[in-house]
Amino acid sequence: MTRLHTRNVNVGYGDKTIVKNLQVEIPDKQITTIIGSNGCGKSTLLKAMTRIIQHQSGSIILDGESITKQNTKELAKKLAILPQNPESASGLTVGELVSYGRFPYQKGFGRLTIRDLEVVEWALDVTGIHEFKYESVDALSGGQRQRVWIAMSLAQETEMIFLDEPTTYLDMAHQLEVLELLKKLNREEGRTIVMVLHDLNQAARFADHIVAMKRGEIIKSGSCEEVIQRDVLRQVFHIDALIGRDPRTNKPVCLTYDLWKGEEETNEKIIYNPAAFASAYT
């Protein structure tokens, strides 16, 4: 099932077109990751699908209607976005920032209702940050702050959450912490997750669906097995990758890679020993 899709979409800045004639479908209640080299249009596509920026031509359809025709507050009840560099929350407590997610539901003077407060409490609980409710956002670690921004997105009560490189600037443990949280939200809450990731192995491990982009166009979209392929990665990243299987998840994993130098294909087979690879993790 697909609630969100694009048709022949072009997006750019000024006279420069970044995303070209794009057609993409976002599977409902699944995790989709968008991969590609820097400047290929990943973030631009994310911003266009969430109406942060306008598309130049084509159509972006959500629930059978163009997003350009939908009321802003109503659209904010359907989807939330966490940008790559969220605006500063200086001076705010965790609880105050998370409560900002209730903006689409507020009327009049914008006072929080009992329902709003209940949702904020739930968002703090599900993201594991309730203990920081009265602490300054500035005083938290990078991973904790990222959880706060995700909690704010959850407080919007949207069924779709978009994240632009949610693991940027985080160490390995905090990256895993954030991605595990998103997976939990997808599996237990049924949220549709769409995120831009740079790490191929993280993309393959956590995604149900992958969109691979290059120069504003989609090179390949589909399951992890269909996209994390040697020929696809060669086109998208200009690398010659050795693909194996993660012994813990059985998902495709990029074991190593070299820059692709454009040599002719050979019939040489690379032997991959799963047992040897697995021994490195035991």
Rank of each mutant, 00 (worst) to 15 (best):
L82P: 01
L82N: 07
K47H: 12
G91S: 12
H55M: 09
L46D: 10
E96C: 05
I114C: 03
P104Y: 04
T50M: 04
K78T: 00
T72M: 12
L45D: 01
Q84Y: 05
N71S: 07
I53V: 15
S59C: 02
I34M: 11
Q84H: 09
S90N: 13
K42L: 13
I114V: 14
V94A: 05
Q54S: 11
Q54K: 14
S90C: 04
I35K: 03
L92T: 07
T113Q: 05
P83D: 02
I61W: 06
G36A: 11
E118S: 13
A89V: 09
G39D: 04
G108I: 07
I35A: 07
S66W: 04
I53R: 09
V94R: 06
F103A: 10
F109G: 01
S90H: 15
K69N: 12
N38G: 08
I35V: 14
I52Q: 14
Q56A: 13
I35P: 00
I81H: 07
I34Q: 06
V94E: 05
E87Q: 15
P104N: 04
Q70V: 08
C40S: 15
I53T: 15
L92D: 02
S66G: 13
F103N: 12
P83N: 04
S66A: 13
R51Q: 12
K77F: 08
Q84W: 01
L79Y: 06
T50Q: 00
R111G: 09
Y105H: 11
S43F: 04
M49Q: 10
R115E: 15
N38P: 03
E74L: 14
P104L: 02
I61T: 11
G108K: 03
G58L: 10
L46R: 11
D63A: 00
V98C: 10
S59Y: 05
A76S: 13
S90P: 00
G101Q: 01
G58D: 06
G91T: 13
R51L: 02
T72R: 14
L79W: 00
S37A: 15
L97P: 03
E118Y: 02
E87H: 14
E118I: 01
